[in-house]
Amino acid sequence: MVALVRAELQKLFTTRLWWVMLISALLYSGFVLVLVTAFAGVSGSPGVPASPGRDTPEYQQLAWSSGSAATLFVMILGIVMVTAEYRYQTITGTFLTTPRRGRVVTAKLLAGLVVGVLFGLATLALTAVVVIPAVSLSGGEVTLTDHGIPRIAGGVLASVALYALFGIGLGALIRNQIGAIMAGVAWVFVVEAILAVVPALRTVGKWTPGGASNALINVNVNTGLGEFDLLPAWGGAAVLVAYALLFAAVASLTTLRRDIT
């Protein structure tokens, strides 16, 4: 299995997509980070409480959570790790090398976890590079061990890593690359957004991958949307893993068994 995981990582790092996705993930979470930093302490309109200032621990909590923006790109990378094999028909060679197809998916999930952790660490590194100077310059006290920052950073790392698994499961289920990416992106931007904003649906929302990711990160800063109904952090991790395993298991019984013609 170690050999198969190494082979999967080799597949990923011998094509260009991984760094395109890494740069995109860093740009996007960097963009969120810049917004949070630039508008720190600014009140949008009368009556709305101002977002926390750069010298506050709350700003640091919000800023550290911005890395979760990378989950989208990790999900796409996970999807492509499976669907590209069908798109370019490399799946033939993969299954000829490893005829037990379930082992291929397991190896991809493990490799995805490794890649997800690497992406998570890269995002956290970017956050540190912005937050630490921003807080220092505005006279605040940089905290890395207090105010729940380690939990938030850990939550970002875990949710970024687990979204890779989610993507792989989704890709195994929907072999068509465009279809799988559309489904994933539509889910993140449309379905989850609706579930998060409509109060009546929030109890459902906490069981979605996005809700699970929020549970992992759990920043208790009022952003104007009210309190979120969230699972405990371990529950969030379990939900994300469960999605990946469920998709992979369903895929093993359906799409993966199909004839490769």
Binding site: K11, T14, T15, R16, A84, Y88, Q89, T90, T92, G93
Partner: peptide, 9 residues
């Protein structure tokens, strides 16, 4: 078939 390769690899 002859097409079983990722073009970028």
């Amino acid at each position: 078939e002859a097409t079983n390769f990722h073009p970028g690899r």
